[in-house]
Design a protein around this nucleic acid. Sequence first.
RNA 1: GCCCCCAUCGACUAGCGGUCCAGGUCGCGGCCCUUUCAAGGCCGUCGCGCGGGUUCGAAUCCCGCUGGGGGCACCA
Length: 416
Amino acid sequence: MVKVRFAPSPTGMLHIGGVRTAVFNWLFARAQDGGEFKLRIENTDTSREVAQAVDQIQESLRWLGLDWDGDHTFQLDRMDDCREVAQRLVDEGKSYEDDGAIRFRMPDEGTTNWEDVVRGHIEFPNDQLEDLVLVRSDGRPTYNFASPMEDVWDGITHVIRGDDHVSNTPKQINLIRAVGAEPPVYAHVPSVFGTDGKKLSKRHGAVSVEEFRDAGYISAALLNFLSLLGWAPDGETTIMSRDELVQRFDLSRVQSSPAAFDFQKLDWMNGVYLRALPRDEYAHELLLYLGEQGYDWDAELVHKAAPLVQEKIAKLGDFPAFAGFLFGDVSLDGHQLDGALLAEAERTLRDVEPFTAEAIEPALRQLAEKLGLKPRDAFAPIRLAVTGSKVSPGLFESLELLGKELALERISAARS
RNA sequence: GCCCCCAUCGACUAGCGGUCCAGGUCGCGGCCCUUUCAAGGCCGUCGCGCGGGUUCGAAUCCCGCUGGGGGCACCA
């Protein structure tokens, strides 16, 4: 039976690099029958900021579908237990007081080593290991003490974490052995970089789960993408459902070299997921998203517009810019329009009845032909007049959704 | 400075001694389709960091170098 944990510290938003670690933990746990995934908050105080961060972490995890088992736990709650253990270690001569702090005596000969599931054999000379402070002089246990202790108490079998912890590991192993426990299996996963090879940070774009959500990525796509950052089931497969991910995930196949976060590929993948959605579900997602983002747009109209954009936008967040003309006035600032052509278009469209895409299309095509214009040239000014942009959903469908009255109004306004 | 780790197309990766003059995906370029933008179809571009070994044979194993990352806290 495996048991893993995700242990973020409640400082600010959940960073996407950290989330990737959570994803690996979760996939690993869910892949095993009865595997458990625990959420542990490594807090050292209980401020209001912490409470908020904890909520946000949980919300982000939930959104991604990374469910954890049982209640989340707080490191802070185990401070007394930690102090007790530290005292016992002092009594046993394995630790000692130093200026009011308690230090753990590291071995100073030989090596400490382990078989890392992703890195293989790792070995540290013990003379490199400094005596670890377990409890500060103010009585607060340190991270490098509390964290491994919690792993022991929680019965964690596999510690899957970022590779910035590699050099903490030998200290933690020695500590765990000193309290008479067996160290867990370790798997240190590589970090996530920006495309420039530097650590992923704000200037690369979105870095927190919330930001990706706000930008209109859908969770299934983000999960799929994150899973593939440092792991691949084979050389071919890229699109995998949640279930398939769980089924195929293999911790020992996780890459030992760092991966760069490619926003372009994420966009592509999000588009794949969006396009694959059944129409109604797509409209539903879109509506939900717009609501979350504070757009108070007519639901029926959004629903009708959805099929027009499904194939065209990669993120739900692109919708307002792409189809916003259906929900509010457009601005034609700085555009020079062919008045004569618009006059013709207006006249043509006035006679179209019913005002549907099927009826509009032949009418406008006929007009283009009559004027000796290529369709693209004839339609461009109309598109601009009606949508306020050179790019838009299909023109005929857009006209239909806008309605005859509004459409004619905009064309007329654009002429003057 | 010391310790640990990493190294295949621009990016994510497959590859675990011969089937690789290195495969897939994104991107990029071209063509086709086309009412714009997308989507789709076809074609193409681009890579084993360097130097030594080992071996009949190396992207694959070993050593060195170079480059990158992480750590060396009474931070987490």
